[in-house]
Amino acid sequence: MSSDKPMNPLEMLAYIIAKQIEDHEVVYIGTGIPMVAAILAKKTHAPNITFVYESGGQDPEHLEMPWSVGGPMTWRKSPIIMEMAYSFAQAATGLIDKGFLGFAQIDMFGNANTHQIGTDYLNPKVRLTGSGGNNDVSSLVDKLIYVGLQDPNKFLKKVDFITSPGWLEGGESRKKAGLLNDGPVAVITSAGVYDFEPSTKRMRIKTLHPGVSPELAQLASGFELVRPEGEIPVTERPSKEILEILRNEVDPNGLFISMPS
């Protein structure tokens, strides 16, 4: 695929997530865009990162995009393949630097839901997948980053079910709950990059993607986004070279970076 084709929001997402990964980090990777981003990081600025997957695969030799977090691309020629309990335990014991997760809903304090739409557990509007490893990764890794598309149905004042605790009710509430780590450090969406205001722990705009105004970002949110002081920086776009690597080497079949039609 040519790099002249305009960049789509999923490619932008993949690039920004990739930028969050530093060389030499050990990263816990969930299904989808995070996989694309981590492979992009490895092929560009972070060649020495180690991938960890929940089924037990670790540090595979890359060939194609994994289709499942249990599939062969997650343990291709892996030097060691863990059991699930120990895969997560590595995060609990302090050996995993970053984790990347998706969400169906997220709220102003970074609490995430992958359980259900609707608040009635016994009769939800839609039952989603449940936690899978979402709760474990969010509760145990050193630094957690959420990734997803942004709209007012996904960015809610209060999520319908807390699968993965964020900063809970803000302030000191997460610490009181006894979790090992801090709440999410960032939320990356199709509109911008967000962090959390240090004292209230409310979600705050960090940068907005090219063409996205604070008003537009706010329209795509069900709660009030905290604005930082001063001018809001524009998120850096990927260069032509990076797009080329993303399209031709990382996901040549467009499995993850093609927009659903």
Binding site: S68, N123, V126, R127, L128, T129, G130, G132, L255, F256
Partner: peptide, 20 residues
Amino acid sequence: SSYTGAEMRGIDKSFSRNIK
């Protein structure tokens, strides 16, 4: 219940209906 679905292909709609 821990996880029911098919990752990239989404949720199990049949499971969702049967819960309801």
